[in-house]
Amino acid sequence: MRATLFSGMHRKIYVTTIFSLFSFCIFGQNINLDSIKIDVQNENSKFYYEKLIYKFKFDPTSLSDEEVKNLYYGKKFSNYKPHFFDTDYLDFTKNFAQGNLKKAIIYGEKYLEKDPINPEVLTYLEIAYRKKDKEAKNYYLYSLQSKTLLNCIMKNGDGKTKETAFKVNSVGEEYLIANILGKNIRTFKRTSSMEKDGTIDGFSKGNESIYFMVFEDIENFK
């Protein structure tokens, strides 16, 4: 059974101004993974993955919407694909859940060296720095990076139907997006169906429902 460590944590995410600019306008329902794969792997392309990673690490605000889309959805065609049970990720989530923020930051930043565009980890690192050291330069950087990636997800779906599902790279990001929207999907019924590029997860409870398309390779669970 697929799960996420963050999904089981009874924790309130403080939705402050970091998320206030989400417009929820949909400008790109069709994510052409074949085209993205070609662009991010072509060293002569303006969307070459290492170029995008460099800009994201040092100035995420310099990225255009199209660049962010290639960065986020091109991840599966890059070298930044650690396994699901990565030890730094596990140590990060454990320490964050226990309130050991200093250790959580250490392990979270080690994990980012392998997976620098993980919005789940970036968001919780931003929260850890907000509580521990708001004057640290990484606090502002992680805030911008998290916001950049989350905006991309929000602009490429609305989660209302299978056809307009939020398109994410991992199960953990499902729970992150749902939390931001104020939905505790741990209490929802989940149904899943396999598609060509991943899995459609639908969560429903009464008249409420939310859908995600997870572009996650089965290799991540081996």
Rank of each mutant, 00 (worst) to 15 (best):
R2F: 06
R2E: 01
A3K: 09
A3C: 14
F6Q: 00
G8M: 08
M9K: 10
H10Q: 12
H10W: 14
K12R: 13
K12H: 11
I13P: 01
I13S: 02
V15Q: 01
V15K: 00
T16Y: 03
T16A: 00
I18M: 06
F19Y: 04
S20L: 06
C25L: 15
C25P: 07
G28T: 10
N30V: 14
N30R: 10
I31F: 15
L33V: 05
L33G: 09
D34V: 12
I36W: 02
K37I: 13
K37M: 10
Q41R: 09
N42P: 03
K46C: 14
L52E: 01
I53E: 06
Y54H: 15
K55A: 09
K57Y: 11
D59I: 12
P60A: 10
T61P: 06
L63N: 10
S64Y: 11
D65E: 06
D65R: 06
V68Q: 03
V68I: 07
N70D: 10
Y72A: 02
Y73R: 02
Y73C: 04
K75D: 04
S78C: 05
S78N: 03
F85L: 02
F85P: 00
Y89G: 01
D91C: 08
K94E: 00
N95D: 02
N95V: 05
N95Q: 09
N95M: 11
Q98F: 14
G99T: 11
L101F: 13
K102V: 09
I105M: 01
I106L: 09
Y107L: 00
G108V: 00
K110Y: 00
Y111A: 05
E113Q: 05
K114N: 04
D115W: 04
E120A: 07
I127V: 14
I127Y: 00
Y129D: 01
R130D: 00
K132A: 09
K132N: 15
D133W: 01
K134S: 15
E135D: 12
E135V: 10
N138L: 05
Y139N: 05
Y139A: 10
Y139F: 08
Y140K: 11
Y140C: 13
Y140H: 07
L141H: 05
L141Q: 06
S143T: 07
L144N: 08
L144H: 08
Q145E: 14
S146V: 03
K147R: 14
T148Q: 10
T148V: 07
L149M: 08
N151S: 05
C152E: 03
K155M: 13
K155W: 14
K155N: 14
N156D: 12
G157I: 11
G157M: 05
G159C: 08
T161W: 08
T161C: 12
K162H: 14
E163Y: 07
E163C: 11
K167A: 13
K167I: 10
S170L: 04
Y175R: 04
N179D: 13
L181Y: 04
R186K: 15
R190P: 00
T191E: 14
S193D: 13
S193Q: 15
S193G: 06
K196A: 12
G198S: 09
D201I: 09
F203A: 13
F203S: 05
S204A: 13
N207K: 12
E208N: 07
Y211V: 04
Y211R: 08
M213R: 09
F215C: 12
F215G: 04
E216A: 04
E219G: 05
E219S: 10
N220H: 09
